[in-house]
């Protein structure tokens, strides 16, 4: 199977999965819009209505953190189970195994654009209008994608070999939810050393902060830092591709024995 066929297969499978999911739900594709809107609704009720948090744009602040995090965590969770979930298919067709995590990642990605659209609408509501600096969201979203792609591919491989990793991945995602500044601002860390440490050691914290800088403050993030992340995770993705190709038969055996 060549690259063109693989891309066409990944795209079609991801679309079919979304179609299949929509056919099971009464509200079908409408959930694509309702899900992010419900998130906003819940945040609004809890943080602005019940807790009366002073910050005027706290809902927007939360959404800028929660949306990239959900994209990241959904991709990793779905991709990590993707090979074991497709045992029937793996037992019947000789396919490059990397296709399966990619299908999960694309499936989440295809829903993501509408989530971002909702985010932009909410941003406008809070007075953050699109500015030329918003074009810097493009390299940010691409790096965000490459980052979750690299980790999802590694997670898919680890879980296929040792299913215990699934528990560790869930723990790791929970830890990242608290350690990436979703509900709080990274800049509230008083110590400069620890603030820099969190930003450097946790790419998700940097990415979330970068979304906030652009959307809320109309300020450009550290482009050099983003470029470094892009290079690191692109290299990681390439290595993961090589590993998947090398372990193709070994992964099949592992799935068939599971």
């Amino acid at each position: 199977m060549n690259i063109r066929q693989s891309i066409s297969l990944i795209d079609l499978q991801a679309r079919m999965s979304l179609k299949s999911e929509a056919s099971r739900l009464y509200l079908s594709y409408l959930w694509w819009v309702f899900e992010p809107l419900l998130f906003v609704g819940v945040f609004y009720v809890v943080f602005q209505f019940l807790l009366a948090r002073g910050q005027e744009n706290f809902v927007l602040f939360l959404m800028c953190g929660k949306i990239p995090y959900l994209w990241f965590s959904k991709s990793i969770t779905m991709a990590s189970n993707s090979l074991l979930m497709n045992k029937g298919l793996i037992a019947a067709a000789n396919l490059p195994k990397i296709i399966f995590p990619y299908i999960s990642i694309q499936e989440v990605l295809y829903k993501q654009w509408i989530v971002f659209l909702v985010l932009f609408i909410v941003a406008t509501y809070y007075g953050s209008y699109p500015d030329p600096i918003w074009f810097w969201l493009i390299p940010l979203v691409i790096t965000n994608y490459v980052f979750l792609l690299c980790l999802s591919l590694i997670a898919a491989m680890l879980v296929t070999y040792v299913q215990d990793f699934r528990i560790l991945i869930n723990m790791g995602l929970l830890f990242l939810m608290f350690a990436s500044g979703i509900f709080w601002d990274i800049h509230d860390i008083q110590s400069e050393y620890w603030r820099n440490f969190v930003m450097t050691a946790n790419p998700l914290a940097f990415i979330i902060d970068a979304y906030r800088l652009i959307i809320i403050d109309n300020v450009l993030y550290d482009t050099q830092h983003l470029f470094c992340l892009f290079i690191i995770f692109s290299t990681g993705t390439l290595i993961a591709h090589k590993l998947f190709a090398k372990l193709n038969y070994s992964l099949t055996r592992q799935v068939l024995q599971s």
Partner: peptide
């Protein structure tokens, strides 16, 4: 295969 890999919702 006899549709073993078929997706039931499609």
């Amino acid at each position: 295969t006899l549709g073993l890999g078929f997706r039931a919702d499609l």
